[in-house]
Amino acid sequence: MRVALRLVPGLWLALLVAAPLALVFVLAVSWQSNGVPPYDPPWAGQGTNPDNLRLLLEDPYYRASLAQSFVVAALTAGLCLLLAAPMGIAIARAGRWRNALLAAVLLPFWTGFLIRIGAWIGLLRDEGWINAVLRGLGLTQDAIPLLYTHGAMLLGMVYAYLPFAVLPVFAAATRLDPVLEEAAADLGATPGHAFLTVTLPQLFPALAAAFLLVFIPAAGEYVIPELLGPPDATLVGRVLFQEFFQNRDWPVASALALALLALLTGPILLFQRLGRAQ
């Protein structure tokens, strides 16, 4: 009975997590075809196809796409952290306002991710709210192009991922012992100095976890670059969609997925270690 109870989740996860990932590996060494489905696996007669993975290493387009994704993900995670660290700490210390402030961070989430990104489209367009305000203040005559820029994309990414970064910092900050900071003050440290030398170092694992919690999904982000970014923001999520849906090149799309996964293995393992350590 107990063994049977282990088998049910085991089989479900084997079928819907392990098998699909194994198929990505198979597809990455398969051949594109005109059939349905549009690929020939290695055992269909042609053997394994090394060209998909070689293409990623040799073609500057794919290399640049992977590099750009990691730069954008790092910028997103860094900017999120700059806001999330003070927010998480301040909320943890807000006393009876703590729950209300935490709800204030999480509630915008419930409008739906797409709708909040849609709101930024309305705010950033040439005839949108921000340009109207700038014109009203007499700061500009012509509309400043804001939407479909790298800046808009980064803004949208930081906006979407910020609450994820606040939570781990908040959780760690609630566990801090205030006595340590008081001791620093008694020994003559100014509040700012005590904060920087006593409080912040204790939060370092949580800050690293918050950074990775944003960095990992941001590296594969598809929706935000597509809706807010310029056409040349060819992040890997976007290129993968394009290869899969427009070019119907499933093997190259799978090779890209594999490359993204390989590059994220280090950050993912580090993130899991930080999670266990807490």
């Binding site: 927010m87 402030l101 709708i115 003050a185």
Partner: peptide, 28 residues
């Protein structure tokens, strides 16, 4: 003991999170 800058950034971050939502609801 929380430095003022930390509290300012909290309110700034909340304003950033809420601005699009408040405008969205108003202009609906």
């Amino acid at each position: 003991m929380t430095p003022r800058l930390v509290r300012v950034l909290l309110w700034g971050g909340l304003a950033f999170l809420w601005l699009p939502v408040v405008l969205l609801v108003g202009y609906a």
